[in-house]
Simulated scan of single mutants.
Amino acid sequence: MRIGRRVVVAWAGLCLAGAAATSALDAEPYADGTGSPAEEPAPTQTHAVNCEEVADLVEQARAEAARERAEGDGAVQRLTVMSAPEECADEIEARGPASR
């Protein structure tokens, strides 16, 4: 019967360890709930955006879409979705209306 008790004790220990691990994984990573430690600085590096280059890319995509519409028979249409930084919206709008 000693072997049976050892198996039960080992099984109970594994169950408790699993419950503790699950609890630790479900808990908030930091006490303040912000998701990052207080001593970690927020990123301050900014990325420069060349809006003229972004607007050029959008203009090229618009021209290519217009050319495909003119050449095609309309049976197959392709949807092109582009994402651009918000600060470039004025430059893109100045180049022409968005294709719809």
Score class of each variant (00 low, 15 high):
Arg62Asn: 12
Ala63Trp: 00
Arg62Pro: 10
His47Trp: 15
Ser36His: 13
Glu52Val: 12
Leu16Met: 14
Ser36Leu: 15
Glu40Ser: 06
Ala84Arg: 03
Glu68Ser: 05
Val76Tyr: 04
Gly35Ile: 07
Ser36Asn: 11
Glu28Gly: 10
Arg6Phe: 09
Val76Ala: 04
Glu40Asp: 08
Cys15Met: 12
Glu71Ser: 09
Thr22Ala: 09
Ala27Leu: 06
Val81Asn: 05
Ala94Phe: 08
Arg67Cys: 01
Pro37Ser: 01
Ala89Ile: 07
Gln77Ala: 12
Ala89Asp: 11
Ala21Phe: 11
Gly72His: 04
Leu25Pro: 03
Ala94Cys: 09
Val7Asn: 04
Glu87Thr: 10
Ala17Thr: 08
Ala38Gln: 07
Ala20Ser: 06
Thr34Cys: 05
Pro97Phe: 01
Glu91Cys: 04
Gln77Trp: 06
Ala17Arg: 00
Val54Cys: 04
Ala21Asn: 04
Cys15Asn: 03
Ser83Cys: 07
Ala42Tyr: 06
Glu87Lys: 00
Ala10Val: 11
Gln45Tyr: 01
Ala20Asp: 08
Glu87Phe: 00
Ala65Thr: 15
Thr80Tyr: 01
Cys15His: 03
Glu40Met: 08
Glu39Cys: 11
Ser99Phe: 03
Glu91Met: 08
Gly74Thr: 06
Ala89Arg: 11
Arg62Ala: 15
Glu87Gln: 13
Arg2Ser: 13
Cys15Val: 15
Gly74Asp: 06
Ala94Val: 10
Met1Gln: 11
Glu68Tyr: 02
Thr80Trp: 02
Val54Leu: 12
Gly96Val: 09
Asp26Cys: 09
Ala70Gly: 03
Thr22Leu: 15
Val58Ser: 08
Ala10Lys: 00
Met82Ala: 07
Ala55Lys: 03
Arg5Pro: 14
Asp32Trp: 06
Ala61Val: 15
Gly96Asn: 10
Gly72Phe: 08
Ala65Tyr: 00
Ile3Trp: 10
Arg69Thr: 06
Val54Gln: 10
Pro85Thr: 01
Ala84Met: 13
Glu39Pro: 05
Val8Tyr: 02
Ala12Trp: 04
